[in-house]
Computed example of a mutant assay.
Amino acid sequence: MSYNYEELSFDEARDLLRQWRESNERRSEEVVELWLTILSDGLDKIGNEKHVLLEQVIFAALDCHCYSVANNCIAILSNEFPGSLRVKRYQAARLEAEEKYTEAVMLLDKIVRADETNSAVYKRMIAIRKARGEIKQAIEDLVDYLKKFISDVEAWQELCELYLQMQDYSRAAYCAEELILHQPHNHLMHQRLADIRYTMGGIENMELAKSYYCQALKLNPDNMRALLGLFLTTNNLLNHYKSSGNSSKRKEVWKLCQWAQSQATKRQQAARAAPAAPGLSQMMLALAITE
């Protein structure tokens, strides 16, 4: 829905910002425009929503690089709540948006020393490390963070991604295992660990990858990435068991490999009518199994 902001009344503008907050819509440019054209001159009429609206405007202004608007809103809050750690977080966010990372880290460090339970501040410091390309330091900080907030699933996911970026697959696998402990019914967690084990290579890792791909498919039979991963993994295992002479293992893996291939082919045929469907049949032909 489009709005002619110049024709909105004060109450309509305030209600519109409330609506965007409740529906988690960022709408940064519109928020700044409404603030500058309508709401900024009637701050005393906003009522109980004053502080949350100012927070909304601060982050919208930072998104749009309107630092003067953000500074004015931060100053209003700072005058009302001198020494507030929450207001200091807004100041750090402004410094971060302006790429004044050293000053931002110093301010965030002060907040952490005053409140060691403030997880959001720790995360901002780690994000700054990433923005500066300090991946190793970001990993160290994230490990320290998880010692305090061990149940933070998003932090484990981020640490896993950073280890993968550094090609430290064994530690990435450990993080993926932690994620499975926190979300055992999430098929994507099992698929992620299977992908890592497959990348690591070796018979033991291939066997583990096979098991986790199977579990991912058990939780979500429509997971095509897990299905293709299972096919590739069992195909690799077939070559090993063929050379090692382990006929019982080879027979078991052969059945699983045939099943994965047939399932992928059936789904590809079912989706053939869709022009954007990926050519799984070509991939399967390129990786044809020979008994």
Rank of each mutant, 00 (worst) to 15 (best):
M1S: 09
S2T: 13
Y5T: 14
S9G: 13
D15S: 07
D15P: 05
L17F: 03
L17T: 04
Q19R: 11
Q19K: 09
R21G: 07
S28N: 09
E29H: 10
E29A: 15
V32K: 07
W35L: 06
T37G: 03
T37E: 09
L39T: 01
L43R: 14
K45D: 00
N48Y: 14
K50F: 15
V52Q: 11
V52K: 10
L53F: 11
E55W: 06
F59W: 07
A60R: 06
L62F: 11
C64E: 14
Y67L: 10
S68D: 15
N71Q: 12
C73F: 05
I74A: 01
A75I: 08
L77I: 05
N79R: 13
N79C: 04
F81E: 10
P82Y: 04
G83F: 04
G83R: 06
Y90V: 03
Q91R: 09
E98C: 05
T102K: 13
L108E: 13
L108Y: 15
D109R: 13
D109C: 14
V112S: 05
A114Y: 01
E116C: 12
E116P: 03
Y122N: 01
Y122P: 00
K123M: 11
A127V: 01
I128T: 00
I128Y: 00
K130A: 12
K136V: 11
Q137W: 02
D141L: 13
Y145N: 11
L146Q: 02
K147T: 06
S151D: 06
E154A: 02
Y163P: 00
M166H: 08
Q167C: 10
R171D: 10
R171P: 01
A172Y: 02
Y174M: 13
Y174C: 03
A176H: 04
E178A: 02
I180T: 01
H182Q: 13
M189N: 00
M189C: 09
Q191C: 14
L193T: 01
A194D: 03
D195C: 05
Y198T: 15
T199N: 08
M200D: 05
G201R: 02
G202F: 04
I203E: 10
E204M: 08
L208A: 11
C214F: 10
A216T: 05
A216D: 08
N220E: 14
R225A: 08
A226H: 10
G229E: 05
T233Q: 02
T234L: 08
N235E: 15
L237F: 00
S244G: 10
S247M: 15
K249H: 03
K249T: 04
K251Y: 11
E252P: 00
Q258E: 13
A260R: 04
A260L: 09
S262D: 14
A264R: 01
T265P: 07
A270F: 14
P275C: 08
A277P: 13
G279P: 13
S281C: 12
M284R: 12
A286D: 14
T290E: 15
